[in-house]
Nucleic acid binder design. Structure first.
Lengths: 142, 142
DNA sequence: TTCTATGCAAAAATTTTGCAATCGT
DNA sequence: ACGATTGCAAAATTTTTGCATAGAA
């Protein structure tokens, strides 16, 4: 997504277009994985050209979350919260218990099941949350 | 589960049977829902008869997790990690967001899917965790 | 220009740790 | 009695906040 497109997206949501917000949004949309605020901070604080404070990262993630651009993921990495782009399409992940690598899963295995469950139990289902843990191919070889 | 049964369970896992561990295990198995360390602490620190320190709660949860009795849930409540009993029989629940009623689900909707996922990605899948939220029939009528 | 966002430093909140006292076997 | 567990206080870590400055509309 181009810088101009992101700017438009921000405008449509009433988010002021700042350099830091551009950078974080762009980064998250490319990352496509739950990531901690600190990881984001590390990426940018190392670069000479960008000014980026950890507080700012937290504040921007908070803003994005409130505006629905980002969501706090259920996954914690070393005790830190993680965030990810809020794909309009519902998505799940696998987490490697050894290296904490996160892999998105294509599609949702509960598609269809939810409506079946709702009908058979009378529950009005609002959302679900699925976490799959395992060992990734790399760590299996070690 | 009786105090004696819990004691046996501890013994079988090499966990020393202390008063605090009994209390926490008993509480968690009845609670049957993700809960924060602080919530557990609050429950017991208010009672005259029990001594229970927040550090102890964290340490016990850590011990239980390592021994497989408890698992850290993916869900964070107000920025705090949550923990829940690790049921040996693989089971899922629906939680009513209005009255917190919990309804077990028959069967696991991911049966079969896990092996498919493992094969197609090379991940060695260890476990999964599913939470379904909705509004129960009773609360829909209100 | 005006209002908001950022950086910085400090505070608040959560989780972990060291050590002496206590408890369980 | 011995080693493990707990309470307490303090440290470490993560997240939030106040305020002056810089930046966007």
């Amino acid at each position: 997504m181009s810088s101009e497109k992101i700017k438009e997206l921000f405008k449509s949501r009433g988010i002021k277009n700042t350099q830091q917000r551009q950078l974080i949004y762009d980064f998250l949309s490319k990352k496509n994985q739950p990531i901690t605020a600190e990881e984001i901070y590390m990426v940018f604080s190392k670069k000479e050209k960008t000014r980026m404070n950890l507080s700012t990262v937290y504040r921007i993630l908070d803003t994005f979350t409130k505006k629905g651009l980002v969501q706090k993921s259920g996954i914690n990495i070393e005790g830190k919260s993680t965030y990810e782009i809020n794909h309009m399409d519902h998505r799940h992940h696998m987490v490697c218990v050894k290296c904490n690598k996160i892999l998105p899963i294509k599609g949702c295995p509960l598609d269809g099941y939810e409506s079946y469950l709702g009908e058979s139990t009378g529950f009005k289902i609002i959302e679900h949350h699925l976490e799959i843990k395992g060992i990734c191919p790399d760590c299996q070889r070690k």
